[in-house]
Design a protein around this nucleic acid. Sequence first.
DNA 1: TTTCGAACAATTGTCGACAATCGGAGTCAT
DNA 2: ATGACTCCGATTGTCGACAATTGTTCGAAA
Lengths: 223, 223
Amino acid sequence: MLPNTPQQGTLADIASHRLAHSIVTGEFAQGQKLNEAELAERFGMGRGPLREALRHLEGMRLVKRIPNAGARVVVLDYKTMSDLYAVREALEGMACRLAATKMTTQEIDQLSRLLDAHEIQIKEEGGGVYAQSEGDLDFHYQIVRGSRNEMLMDMLGSEQYQLQRMCRFRTSRNAQRTYPALQQHRQIVEALAQRDGELAEMLMRRHIQGAWRSISETIAKEE
Amino acid sequence: MLPNTPQQGTLADIASHRLAHSIVTGEFAQGQKLNEAELAERFGMGRGPLREALRHLEGMRLVKRIPNAGARVVVLDYKTMSDLYAVREALEGMACRLAATKMTTQEIDQLSRLLDAHEIQIKEEGGGVYAQSEGDLDFHYQIVRGSRNEMLMDMLGSEQYQLQRMCRFRTSRNAQRTYPALQQHRQIVEALAQRDGELAEMLMRRHIQGAWRSISETIAKEE
DNA sequence: TTTCGAACAATTGTCGACAATCGGAGTCAT
DNA sequence: ATGACTCCGATTGTCGACAATTGTTCGAAA
């Protein structure tokens, strides 16, 4: 469902996925230096494939490379997260607009049932945040797929998806938002069902703005 | 001004830039296979740095890699170009909205003078398309910079910029659009000067939609 | 004591060679 | 003639070693 391709392909791909996972889960601290030789030994491979993996992660904006000075895990400061959510608002808004005309009625029904499952899950588990969080990603990704836009799927799937997870790990608990978020999801599905792309885009953009506001306040409260 | 960093850094960076240039100018045909050994010899380097460059270009969506089968220049078919313009509409629209509040009055004035220069250039050269094309890119990039959003600048600067140039090379001459495009640019600057982000976003989105419609018709006419 | 400089250690960048895998030519049987 | 199988060439994937660059530490002079 989600782009969690473990991929038993080349060693570089394996290293790329393992590194990405270690970074988004916080196993590697932000700004931490990534030593090539050390990582290569840990993964049981040479430095060649590992360097290629680092190049790939650089393209995904998960690490930042400085020539002759090595690679470091990217630092998600307030400004970066703010920028990220603006980009998400634009891209997912467009995805939603496109999905309103491109998704089949069947797919929209399926999306509605997905929300039913989420609602039950929330009530049973008393607002289990993590499940909702993953479910939220699932909901958004289904809409992006519904846009039928390969480039959007790539961007929101492989690149931003990872950074977004880093945001969630950084500011994990904002449980109070799970229920209003579900309500907003319902409104979005409604707009999709009515094939109103303009409305769907607007609702999605507001939804993401709300998510950012919530995260932003959480960060402010921590300080 | 534009992100044309020739970068005398590592060999991988040099190879990356040379390859990118060869691809966007059409020196390498779309879908052409990129032989590692051959390219490494042509650039006077080993296969290691070249492989890293290919990984980088893969992240920029200029080449497509298949494990154990090599890398090929991406093919810009109609669907891909359509997807690209939808993404551009979303991202540049957002950039324009942000720029309306973030750009200094001085920067907006400068943008206005840039358009004056374009107008003179068009009248003198009788609508020299290529110059206008580069000028158009310059205009758009200035607005993206004005958004103060690093992620937008990265995405629209390094990644899409290249693909967009490929589009232009594929469908080079649509001279009839230079003048209405300039008019639209003027409207956008006007909205920026009035600090009307919503209007500026809408105008930019229409502008890009118009550009796509023009390119789309050109392609349809060729067939 | 501070500061500048030089040697040194650590890490990155690069290359050449070897192993693994894929695509295609050729062959044989049906 | 066509289909599948096998072998071979070509290309990609990987590794280890070497060169180049950086950051540091130690020492000597002001």
